[in-house]
Design a protein around this nucleic acid. Structure first.
Lengths: 130, 130
DNA sequence: CAGGATCCTGGATGATACTG
DNA sequence: CAGTATCATCCAGGATCCTG
């Protein structure tokens, strides 16, 4: 992380064109990242897999409220994004293990900065939205 | 705690109960933060207001594709979350200026860590999703 | 066990028109 | 200028049933 902080990172401080075109918006790595892991379950899965590897039904049982459909879809997306590794063991019945890739592990670090901020300011931002 | 974990933040490394109950999920500051700024426009607005203060229509013109409805709603939400300050000047016609609160400014910092990660790994994660 | 296939709904977002 | 109000739309996500 940056010791001497230039608050705004280069990509963000970088002059935004005026008006900000839709393509530019879609191309922004930060917005892109958020669109990928900003959904309902991605973050939680990255966090859980950051602790240890899990099997499919293990995740399904562990996360109350997630549907099979969404668990599968989210894992597939994370896999396509290179954050999660899926390993199939040809046993009978089959078993599949999920874990973080090195890229996924590396994401935990900047996530921690955001997490710490969120924790530190949770009293402030805890107010429910209308 | 089951181990020494350098990169996983306390709140994340913290033992997740099994199964993870919905309340716990909703109460997680990180998930909560993402639910607040993880929408389509919040991030961009925080970033833009991190550079300078803007007036309403100035934002409207600057951000191609945003509707008045969403601009207003997003600004209101950010204001309620204490990230954005709204100042009304009783001129005729009225003018309203938006800027970041100190809290909003402080968010730019951890955001930068995430942004740097996103930029550094954008080639990897740039693959379009199906 | 680890999914795939379908159907369906609510909430997020957009479009448009109007106003103090 | 800075919004509000209303209607329309779209899709993430859930529920359910099925299978190699």
């Amino acid at each position: 992380m940056s010791g001497t902080n230039t608050h705004v990172p280069a990509v963000l401080a970088h002059e935004l064109p005026n008006p900000v075109p839709r393509d530019e918006l879609a191309a922004c790595p930060v917005n892109d990242l958020f669109r990928r892991i900003g959904d309902k379950w991605s973050m939680l899965l990255v966090i859980m897999l950051g602790k240890r590897r899990y099997r499919y039904n293990e995740l399904h049982r562990s996360i109350e409220g997630i549907s099979q459909r969404m668990l599968t879809r989210t894992l597939r997306d994370l896999e396509n994004d290179g954050l999660v590794r899926r390993e199939v063991f040809p046993t009978v019945p089959p078993s599949v293990e999920y874990s973080l890739t090195p890229l996924g592990e590396s994401l935990l670090e900047p996530l921690s900065a955001l997490a710490e901020w969120a924790v530190r300011n949770s009293p402030v931002t805890a107010a429910p939205r209308p």
